[in-house]
Nucleic acid binder design. Structure first.
Length: 556
RNA sequence: GGCCCGUUGGUCAAGUGGUUAAGACACGGCCCUUUCACGGCUGUAACAGCAGUUCGAGUCUGCUACGGGUCACCA
């Protein structure tokens, strides 16, 4: 068969040659060792939390080596495409601090290796498709519209897996061999009839033979050669992931392909395509998937439907960007935490990220750990930073609270400053949403009396103590002087002025200073627990302190 | 079912032939403490199993088991 003629019949409009493209997209001139990485999401309007892992690796590797990190949109599956999704992706990744050097941006493409959206690269794919046909390595398969419709409905049912694996494999093999047989005349008449064709690459592998590949995280792999014909172009002329991956990553000069390990089974196909196309394959890193626990306690791939699968959810739940990024980093490089405690003042980006420290197996997403990381992150922030964080969150998630905070920034910051900044800062917040319940009693609109005075204490004693507290209060007292007065009050109502005294001889007293402090706390904050009382009262001011205590006395 | 990948405490994990098998989270206890939040000390808890190589194996090899992934004109 005259393959060149076939190629011309199939792709009459393609005049550009692979050499032209090589010239247009030359090797990048980058420093020695610079890595070119990319993330290539589908525009589904959804960015998976698991996707943050490869994305972070890509970003770190590229920027740590003086290379290029770019964004390519893989919109080759029109069925799944969502309007405006590309913009959503750039926005969320930018929010998480993943900044691209090149690729699709809000203001169009940036960089010399574009277009960076696959649907705009169809002409490019066809150049290589034609080349493969001309070389006898690819062939068309014609289908009528009805057959295509049938395929599409089958697609949707692809999740329903067959039980007859062996029979299926046999049938598929037969079908494949049959597809490869056709004559030039048949092609001519199909084309004349206006039928569309998909393009398949002929597999030349023997699955009994293994090829050795080095994966940068998995190590040396032995995978069987590919013996399944690979779909290059779908009937609509759009490439499959496999073909687009080979063409794009070569032309865009990607040095390191970093992706989830679900791609491992098709690596053999990809290597075959790179060989057919005469491209040097990139280095591969297949990173372990993020897992979740299913109802039976087994690990499962963290899929789209699962809670917390959408990266956007973490913003909504009130996790700070830093917390999520730190958590991701602790999972990616297990020595990160150690480094961070040793270098508390350094930025996350100063950490020497290492491929060698990456885990080979998938890990469970651990919310407890995320919360712990998050508490540490927030505890190191200044009151102003916390204020900004909470406001950013509340603005969309709790507008009323946002308005409350905005009304008096200084007041809010003074609350947030309690117990902050020292060597042992408070760690009250894992998420921004924790802030409101923590500080709500400082605001009259949110103040409520949740906890009652201890039932085992005499009401008159409580009243007396509270009255004395109001009378003795002097805003010029320092913390020690203030507390001394509280001790005096305790003594006056027959309570021990030291907790230790009470513990030694509990029968001698009705209670201790701690109890008195508790009366005051409950009267003022409405709860048994609060940040440092002395600070609380200072912020609240004498006036409101007095009002609340008086109100509390009246309730007794 | 075929193929591929994996398996150290509940979770994340150090560990590259000789260790009392780190550390972090979670959980328990004690201490500190006017509550809370910290902090300090401390405890429970692990090399999936079986063979083999070796003077010696969590580390190397093989098998088994278990878990995961994948087998689309989806990515």
């Amino acid at each position: 068969m005259d393959y060149c003629k076939l190629a011309d019949m199939l792709f009459p409009d393609v005049t550009v040659t692979p050499d032209d493209l090589e010239a247009k997209y030359p090797e990048r001139s980058l420093p020695e060792g610079a890595k070119v990485t990319r993330i290539a999401p589908s525009p589904t309007g959804f960015f998976h939390i698991g996707g943050l892992f490869p994305a972070t690796v890509c970003e770190r590797l590229a920027h740590q080596s003086g290379g290029v990190f770019y964004l390519r949109i893989e919109d080759t599956d029109s069925k799944r495409e969502v309007e405006g999704a590309a913009g959503f992706i750039t926005t969320i990744l930018d929010y998480y601090g993943l900044h691209f050097d090149e690729g699709v941006t809000a203001d169009g493409d940036k960089g010399d290796y574009g277009p960076y959206t696959q649907s705009q690269r169809v002409d490019i794919y066809h150049v290589y498709a034609k080349k493969l046909v001309a070389e006898g390595r690819a062939y068309p398969v014609f289908s009528t519209d009805e057959e295509l419709d049938e395929l599409k409905t089958l697609d949707k049912k692809a999740e329903i897996k067959s039980v007859n694996w062996e029979q299926d494999a046999e049938a598929r093999r037969e079908a494949m061999l049959k597809r490869r047989e056709f004559t030039m005349e048949q092609v001519e008449s199909e084309l004349a009839a206006g039928h569309k064709f998909a393009l398949f690459a002929i597999a030349d592998g023997d699955p009994e033979k293994k090829i050795k590949v080095t994966d940068l995280v998995k190590g040396l792999l032995e995978i069987p050669e590919n013996d399944e014909d690979v779909v290059l172009l779908k009937s609509d002329g759009i490439p499959t992931y496999h073909f687009a991956h080979a063409v794009d990553d070569h032309l865009m000069r990607t040095t390191h392909v970093i992706r989830g390990e679900e791609w491992l089974p098709s690596l053999s196909k990809h290597l075959m395509l790179f060989r057919y196309l005469g491209f040097k394959p990139p280095k591969y890193m297949h990173i372990a998937q993020l897992m979740r626990l299913d109802e039976n306690g087994n690990k499962k791939k963290f899929s789209k439907r699962d809670m917390g699968a959408n990266l956007e959810d973490y913003r909504k739940m009130g996790y700070s960007v830093d917390a999520v990024n730190e958590y991701v980093m602790t999972l990616l490089n297990s020595n990160y935490e150690e480094w961070h405690t040793q270098n508390p003042d350094k930025d996350r980006l100063d950490f020497p990220f290492s491929i060698k420290k990456m885990s080979v197996s998938g890990c469970l997403f651990d919310t407890e750990k995320l919360n712990d990381v998050s508490k540490n992150v927030i505890s190191k922030m200044t009151a102003a930073q916390v204020y900004d964080g909470v406001c950013g969150f509340a603005k969309t998630m709790d507008p009323e609270f946002y308005e409350t905070l905005q009304a008096d920034r200084g007041y809010a910051e003074s609350i947030l400053a309690i117990g902050r900044g020292g060597a042992k800062p408070r760690k009250d917040f894992a998420v921004w949403a924790d802030v409101k319940p923590y500080m709500s009693f400082f605001y009259d609109r949110y103040f409520s009396r949740d906890d009652d005075m201890p039932a085992d204490k005499d009401k008159e004693d409580i009243k007396t103590a509270l009255k004395k507290f109001i009378d003795s209060y002097d805003e010029n007292d320092d913390q020690t002087g203030w507390f001394e007065k509280l001790k005096d009050i305790a003594e006056q109502i027959g309570y021990a002025r030291e907790t230790k005294l009470y513990k030694k001889e509990p029968d001698k007293y009705k209670g201790h200073v701690g109890d008195v402090a508790s009366f005051v706390r409950i009267a003022i904050t409405g709860r048994q627990n609060s940040p440092d009382l002395y600070e609380v009262i200072k912020i609240l001011g004498r006036h409101r302190m007095t009002d609340r205590i008086k109100e509390s006395i009246a309730l007794l």
